[in-house]
Computed example of a mutant assay.
Amino acid sequence: MKKKPIIGISGSMIIDEGGMFPGYKRSYVNNDYVKSVIEAGGIPFIIPMNNDEEVIENQLDLIDGLILSGGHDVNPLLFNEEPHQKLGGIYPERDDFDFKVVKKAMNKNMPIIGICRGHQVINVANGGSLYQDLSLIEGCYIKHNQGSLPSQATHTVTVEKDSVLGGILGEKTYSNSFHHLAVKDVADGFRIVALAEDGVVEAIEREEKPLVMGIQWHPEMMSGVDKGMMDIFKYFINECKNK
């Protein structure tokens, strides 16, 4: 039997605010990432957050592809801006971890998908920038932080037909939405491949192989009810088999 590809999912840290151990740190990822990888034919491998470069290097040697998970706002100092009044919570230690992970993974030429924060990290780590809040984008009118169920699609996304994502989803799809930052200047070597109807960037792809893709919405939350979102993970895992 051919070995299934091992997919690393970047972890985060949650700090208990009550209970028996207030202030206690726990490494985690949301389970939808794990479920999506398994259902798409891969083996999930959670990469615990740490800042030891040798450890990260060895963690990446164990995997065939990388998913950068969602979470905190990206520190604007990393793209040479001071924090705006509407910036949310940042976690510099996680920024350091994610930047090391994505840069080392790209150096190893492995397929990468970044989701929500992960999409933004890919852009900033490669020299791009972000809007620190959607209110700073002229013409932005869509509700991008929905108040409905995680798996519920709430707005339209137009996808470039000649992109990898367009080949998976077609030229139009419907996404869920949980963000208030967005891509501003796109990193060199990447291009915008999906937009919301108000012009907010919904996906980017690297122009050369292997696949490095950022997706602003959360396909892992929709993959159990939406074939197209599951197909994103299936395509990605197939790329990891062939790397």
Rank of each mutant, 00 (worst) to 15 (best):
T156F: 06
A194L: 03
Y91F: 15
D198I: 03
N145F: 07
G70P: 09
G8S: 12
P210G: 04
D95I: 02
M20P: 13
L149I: 02
K100T: 01
E54D: 15
I115V: 14
F233V: 12
T154I: 04
V193K: 11
D162H: 03
E93N: 08
M49N: 13
Y235L: 14
V121I: 09
G41I: 04
L66A: 06
L169E: 03
V29Q: 12
G214T: 00
I46T: 10
D98V: 00
F79I: 01
N107A: 09
F190D: 10
L195E: 10
I7M: 12
S135Y: 01
L77T: 07
F99A: 05
E54F: 08
A153H: 02
V74P: 04
N176V: 14
K234L: 04
V186I: 14
A194H: 04
Y131I: 09
L87E: 07
I14P: 01
N31V: 13
G199S: 14
H144M: 01
V225N: 12
S69I: 06
M221D: 06
K108W: 02
C240M: 09
H72E: 15
K227C: 04
N123F: 03
L78Y: 01
M230R: 14
G166T: 13
C116P: 10
V37P: 09
Y131W: 13
I63M: 11
N242L: 12
N109W: 05
R26H: 13
I204H: 06
K161Q: 15
K241S: 12
N126R: 07
H144W: 01
R206Y: 00
G18P: 06
I142Y: 03
S151A: 08
G41F: 01
G41C: 08
H119W: 03
E205N: 06
I67C: 08
I9M: 15
N242W: 03
I115E: 08
E82V: 02
Y28W: 09
P48A: 02
P22T: 07
D98S: 05
G199I: 06
I215C: 04
G11H: 08
K241E: 09
I38D: 04
K243G: 12
E39N: 15
D95R: 08
G88A: 03
K86E: 12
V55C: 10
E207Y: 00
E93H: 06
A153C: 06
N242A: 13
K100V: 00
G147R: 08
G41M: 06
E39K: 15
I63A: 13
G70S: 13
E207R: 07
E208M: 07
P92I: 08
N50V: 10
P92E: 12
